[in-house]
Design a protein around this nucleic acid. Structure first.
Lengths: 392, 392
DNA sequence: CCCATTTGTTAGACCGTCTATCTAATTCGC
DNA sequence: GCGAATTAGATAGACGGTCTAACAAATGGG
């Protein structure tokens, strides 16, 4: 059933608009918010008053003088209004970050991960408690209340937010969200790590204000996050964006999915290192691969160029089908971007339609490996803005 | 700037909900509309009253008796409330259809097309006038007022609705919408024929209520319409869905786009007939090809099977990337569907990810070649429902 | 010191939906 | 036949939005 549309829904929608306008334009005045959201200044005044009342927004004491007329009072999301926590859960490590409700980073930490569910959940729980405890303001007062937690996991999640399969962690049909919500006592949002990272790029990174973009990343596999028409696109079952299993070499290298020639058998960190090993180059990670390439190792260079070429073919399919404005190379792909980009661009030139190719921008993620935990923040922010009723 | 969200916007949104609920459930009662839309029955009463006032909805005279209690009064979109016109503009022919505001077909016609802009516009104008004149109710009264016109064209349209390029018609940067709107005196909506057809499948065909689907068609090229997240997806420039230019055979047959091995060099009507000709089978159209295949012609069968296989590869890319619930084979592809489907399905089995493939449904369009003009109806309906203010 | 200028607030009109009640039209039970 | 039960639909009032228009507040310039 569709949600009811009534006065309360209007207020919520407009309040969220004001929130994001203020988040993206810190210390701006009510007048600016009015112009940014398109709402009347009277309406803006009422909404801001309510947000101040609830403690979500604070007015600056020092008025900013303009050339003439009454000076503006700068507004801001109150740091004391609450805390968001984002996490990246991987087999080896767990990264945790806490931010204000506006998304400004407060604390970070990194702790060991585990493929054992109970152990991983315990580490996560303890790590979050520690980060929240460390996120107290300077005066030594109590930390702001925890408003939401978002977690990016290398897993297939269905549309209901259930974990279906996490091959690297060895988990299947694990009710991770209820488990965590019970343990942590705050709203928990779990999503695929790549989709979370795409959300982060949209809210905090290279894609602010971009309606249609593709986020690419490569760790054990190659993932794609599709942001289409101003929102994260999930598909019918929640599995959209699986670029890693496009066939790029018919009859090529065997893939864990049972098929052959999948993109991720050529482009993921795992497969690049495996191929290097087959050719007598034992490399621990992609940083080593980038270093070797920088030193002029022809074998590693050829591998990375081939990876770029294959990625470019798959990406050209993506571009022809979805006509994005921007493509972001994120995650581990950003480490080797400089060696991958030339052949990637050439493949795009060759296989993408000219008008789509011409206006396509391709950037390396500014968030880099922090994109996933910041994606958790994005999930949590989205969640706490979506709760009906007054925000706090 | 985002549209303002206020009382008027709510009413419009809820009225459109009621409209579609009534369109999809003809002769239902107010109580049913209330349940279908989730609105309170008081609200439904007010909205229906307004729509009756405006002449958009009519109440049935004969009450429908139920087991007990006051009988329902059946409601319906008034046929006299207005007329929509949809058209398909092709170089050789123009098909025109008129419907009620609910989308029930009233009249149809087919007239000659032209690649000369002025001639085509004149034919279109005269044809629409004739269809409108023929759409008068039985009593001989004046035809209902023309509320909107939608036209599907084999052309690249940008996001602002401007015609960028129509290779088959030989048009480029043609301001067709302003020209027609001035001539016809009603709101005109022009869109790519495949996208229009996808809209038709969603409103009237196989995809009613489906949020994520892919519509495929093949005439001179192969087009794809993406319906994602409950709305037609256009992409950053408006060119999304260009499945016809996915590379399926590296270094394969040369394509009009300048590349090689594009899908549409193997699957479109034009290319299938050309390939048959190269092999000594002169066929006038795909019906002839289907007939030959039905008679057991091995050359034609092999061609169609190869087409299915290539289409399946491209479609598996689409499926892996967008995870649709449903794929619709429309347009000319539906003519040869029975010979294409076996290899198409096999290619999907081979190249699409198993969980995505398992839940994917694949159907042949029930609208067939009428999808494009009915897509014009869908565009016109969408347009007249989007005008702010009271609907009529 | 007065006035123009700009920001922000407030009063009231206007228009939505929702709750609660009422009216209308039928069937069921006697 | 006739009243009670039942269901569909209408209506009144509460409530809560946004918008217009006027007002209050705070500054610079003459």
């Amino acid at each position: 059933m569709l949600p009811r549309v009534n006065s309360a829904a209007i207020r919520r929608l407009n309040m969220v608009r004001v929130f994001h306008a203020l988040r993206e334009n810190p210390r701006c005045a009510q007048r600016d918010l009015s112009r940014l959201t398109g709402l009347d200044k009277a309406t803006t005044s009422a909404i801001v008053a309510q947000m101040v009342e609830e403690g979500l927004v604070e007015r600056s004491e020092a008025p900013r003088a303009r050339r003439i007329g009454r000076p503006e009072t700068a507004l801001g999301i109150a740091p004391s209004a609450g805390l968001l926590v984002g996490a990246r859960l991987e087999p080896g490590t767990i990264r945790i970050v806490s931010t204000t409700l506006a998304g400004a980073v407060v604390e970070q930490s990194q702790i060991p991960g585990s493929t054992d569910l109970a152990t991983a959940l315990r580490h996560l729980h303890e790590g979050i408690d520690a980060v929240v405890a460390a996120s107290r303001p300077e005066g030594g007062a109590a930390p702001p209340p925890l408003r939401g937690i978002g977690i990016g996991i290398p897993a297939l999640m269905d549309r209901a937010g259930r974990l279906v399969l996490a091959p690297n962690l060895g988990w299947r049909d694990t009710p991770i969200r209820p488990l965590l919500e019970e343990a942590l006592g705050a709203p928990v949002h779990v999503d695929n790590d790549t989709k979370a990272a795409a959300m982060a790029e949209r809210l905090f990174g290279a894609c602010r204000g971009v309606e249609d973009f593709v986020y690419l990343t490569g760790h054990s596999g190659v993932g794609g996050g599709l942001f289409l028409g101003g929102r994260l696109y999930r598909g019918a079952q929640g599995f959209a964006g699986e670029i890693g299993h496009l066939t790029v070499v018919p009859g090529g290298r065997p893939c864990g999915c049972g098929k052959r020639g999948c993109l991720e058998t050529y482009v993921s960190e795992t497969s690049i290192l495996a191929q290097a090993g087959e050719r007598g180059r034992a490399l621990p990670d992609l940083w080593a691969a980038a270093a070797a390439a920088r030193d002029g190792d022809p074998v590693v260079r050829a591998l990375l160029e081939a990876a770029g070429s294959h990625l470019g073919v798959a990406l050209s399919h993506m571009v022809n089908l979805t006509n994005p404005e921007l493509v972001v190379l994120g995650g581990n792909l950003s480490i080797v971007a400089e060696f991958v980009l030339p052949t990637l661009n050439a493949a795009l030139d060759e296989h993408a339609l000219e008008p789509l190719r011409r206006d396509l921008r391709l950037v390396v993620s500014p968030l880099g490996p922090d994109a996933v935990p910041m994606g958790g923040i994005a999930l949590a922010m989205d969640g706490f803005l979506s709760v009906p009723g007054p925000i706090l």
